[in-house]
Design a protein around this nucleic acid. Structure first.
Lengths: 195, 195
DNA sequence: GTCTATAGGGCGATAGAC
DNA sequence: GTCTATCGCCCTATAGAC
């Protein structure tokens, strides 16, 4: 495919990450981004539904991988299966995106309320997809929604630790750490059950 | 305070809920909402930062109540305390908003991606506020974030059940049900720990 | 690609409350 | 008089329609 210079979406994504980082999200117009990528404003909107979406392009592909991992997972309690799915996603982020790019992107997202909003939305969509995948394995609807939500929250905590800390364990390691903390948390709440 | 007819924000909120329900969110302009409230478009934006915000006005007050409930709560494991805070919030929603209005509002929010996005953002902000309240009680930062996130997810499941079901148990009852399911879920995952 | 409507901000004027 | 809510007209950027 392609035409003159190929990979328009890729160039737009790179240009957006640069400009949003340099000038700030609000101070950068779509026209600015398109210009740096050597494209027209109109072309930007042919590839991305809106200005925010240029930073969340890969989310859907990642979601599909996570859902596939859940479908392929062996038997087990729903929360464990959901966390295995998130671990598969974490491996992909760690390998194909990498710590530095994730860090830079996270910094930009954190700087804008609009972008944080979109990120929350993507997480909610991921949670819905996870829940659907769990239900396909025979999990009860109510339990599936809860397990999916808890797994996504656990992932968010791990992701924040990964992109926030400088030295940084890997994302997979952070996720396993967060999952351990989750187990402790639940055990603590249970211990007080009768009191 | 006020001017001729008082409570401009209240009239704008009511007008917005009506019009969004009748015509749909996208098909309703801010000018339409302002006109129905007998105000100008410019006045709308003085009271609400943007078009979405008119439906999420009370969120901050509710958040403060929940945070206060956590600060006042007796000793206990962090997740339990966080869920007590959400229960306090649930009581307020059940009493001061009521099932019918919550239902209508939820239907409107569900109908628009923009509005769902904003709702997710509010939930994320609530989670951050909860985490801060837990840390103020001496809870470790990592644990606080996780407990807050899990409590909010549990609340979301209960809220969806409350506004989705027709017959409907109360929101507080739904929340207690969801918390029970959460405990079962965690216990299930733990049982498999060693295998 | 061009054209247009809407979101949303800035500023100054005004009209009431105190 | 001050203070504040409202309004009207300016503008640009987003985003959809043609």
């Amino acid at each position: 495919m392609g035409r003159w210079a190929s990979d328009a979406p890729g160039r737009l994504r790179a240009a957006a990450l640069e400009l949003f980082g340099e000038r700030g999200y609000d101070e950068t117009t779509v026209a600015d981004v398109a210009a740096r990528a050597g494209l027209s404003e109109r072309t930007f909107f042919r590839h991305f539904a809106d200005k925010r979406e240029v930073l969340f392009d890969g989310a859907r592909a990642l979601e599909d991988e996570i859902v596939a991992a859940i479908a392929d997972a062996g038997p087990g309690p729903s929360l464990r299966v959901a966390l295995e799915g998130m671990t598969a996603g974490a491996r992909i982020l760690e390998g194909e995106v990498g710590h530095e790019r994730a860090r830079r992107r996270a910094r930009v997202v954190a700087s804008s309320e609009e972008l944080r909003e979109r990120e929350q939305m993507k997480m909610a969509e991921l949670s819905d997809a996870l829940a659907a995948a769990l239900r396909s394995r025979g999990c009860a609807p109510g339990e599936a929604g809860l397990a999916a939500g808890v797994a996504v929250v656990t992932f968010e905590v791990a992701f924040a630790a990964w992109t926030g800390g400088d030295v940084g364990a890997g994302l997979v390691e952070e996720l396993s750490r967060a999952a351990g903390a989750l187990a402790t948390l639940a055990a603590g709440a249970r211990a007080h059950e009768g009191s």
